[in-house]
């Protein structure tokens, strides 16, 4: 257990990786969005997608923790289990912190009428319309999802190389296209549309969380046999 905690602490030794850079990216994106909002002379709500910028960094973090931090952890004789649990726990903590920041941002945004320029950075139509816990769940799950996706693909890459990554990417694409084709063939698009219309941000978070758990379990079983 202590080695699991040490794995998390190890990745906080350089504060930039998990704390400095996400905050910097968030702040830079926020300031840029605000500048743009201020330049648009419209007196009604302006929404930008700038708040998603740190999410892409989390994808990169997921990839790097598998391609670089995992080999390093092996050099320090850290078990794969300790590395996995420690890294995922650390990321969960970071995601919780970032979610808190997004919620806080959203509250201030509403209170100041879009930072005084009718600009909405943290609020996203539909997503942030529900109660606070629904918004929180959505942000948290999306962050986890990005990280785990990155981790998952890097795991595949480490274990099976370029061809493995290609096969799994193509495989996922083929399955999706196949499902779409099947839906078209069976004329189920109406049902699918109706299903989506029924979803709330909270239920979408639930489904995404389920996918996260599946992918996380998958990357763990792959990692168990991965070599640095």
């Amino acid at each position: 257990m202590s080695r699991t905690v040490a794995v998390a602490r190890m990745q906080l030794i350089n504060k930039w990786t998990y704390i400095g850079w996400p905050l910097t990216i968030l702040l830079a994106s926020f300031l840029m969005s605000l500048a743009i909002f201020a330049l648009i002379p419209v007196q009604e709500g302006k929404y930008g997608g700038g708040s998603q910028a740190p999410m892409w960094y989390f994808l990169v973090l997921g990839i790097q923790s598998m391609t670089l931090v995992f080999p390093f952890s092996q050099g320090l004789s850290i078990s794969r289990r300790a590395f996995y649990l420690g890294t995922l726990s650390l990321f969960s903590l970071i995601a919780v912190g970032m979610t808190g920041l997004y919620l806080l941002g959203g509250v201030i945004e509403k209170a100041t009428n879009g930072w005084g320029v009718y600009g909405y950075f943290f609020s996203i139509p539909w997503v942030t319309d529900g109660p606070w816990y629904s918004t929180a769940a959505f942000f948290f799950v999306v962050m986890m999802f990005m990280f785990i996706i990155g981790f998952w693909f890097a795991t595949i890459f480490k274990r099976w190389g370029t061809s493995g990554t290609l096969v799994s990417t193509l495989g996922s694409a083929v399955v999706l296209i196949g499902l779409a084709a099947l839906t078209t063939l069976l004329e189920w698009w109406g049902y699918v549309g109706a299903w989506f219309a029924q979803q709330t941000p909270l239920s979408i978070s639930g489904w995404a969380a389920l996918l996260c758990v599946v992918l996380a379990a998958g990357s763990y079983s792959t990692l168990r046999r991965a070599t640095p």
């Binding site: 190890m10 990745q11 030794i13 391609t67 670089l68 931090v69 080999p71 390093f72 850290i78």
Partner: peptide
């Protein structure tokens, strides 16, 4: 040996100290 992307030697040493 590979090291985390942002790591400097002193970070690597402090990591080793943890284990």
């Amino acid at each position: 040996q590979k090291y985390p992307d942002d790591f400097q030697p002193r970070h690597a040493f402090r990591s080793a100290a943890l284990f």
